[in-house]
């Protein structure tokens, strides 16, 4: 992994990597990818991917309201709110 690949990956993950840490991050992520690359030698031609160990499927429920209004409780722990809305920096000029 070179620096540009790491920077692209960091952006996808919405993370920032300090320029002086790029080498170290690249090396360690490369080590992990070398480990997982062992999978490529495995023959999986006729194998179905496993999504749930017990092959469970999504349960359905009656279409009724089950959630109470918890807005005040949830917003009480937010970094910044106003009039029941979450505040973020200006996104439209």
């Amino acid at each position: 992994m070179d620096h540009s690949e790491i920077k692209k990956l960091a952006h996808l993950a919405r993370l920032e990597i300090r320029p002086d840490a790029l080498d170290e991050v690249a090396e360690r992520i490369s080590n992990v990818l070398t480990l997982v690359d062992q999978l490529q030698a495995l023959d999986t031609d006729h194998v179905a991917p496993m999504a749930h160990p017990l092959d469970a499927v999504q349960r359905l429920r009656a279409d009724v309201v089950t959630e109470p209004d918890c807005r005040a409780a949830y917003q009480a722990i937010a970094p910044a709110t106003e009039n029941g809305l979450y505040l973020v920096p200006k996104v439209i000029d």
């Binding site: 960091a10 992990v32 999978l39 495995l42 999986t44 991917p49 496993m50």
Partner: peptide, 27 residues
């Protein structure tokens, strides 16, 4: 590190080689 490895494994063009392959290995 794990978030970045995960983003890599799920990113366009790599999904089949990593995530789908790992789910087959899991089977």
């Amino acid at each position: 590190r794990r978030i970045m490895v995960g983003c890599y494994a799920l990113s366009a063009g790599f999904y089949d080689a990593y995530y789908a392959k790992a789910q087959k290995a899991r089977r």
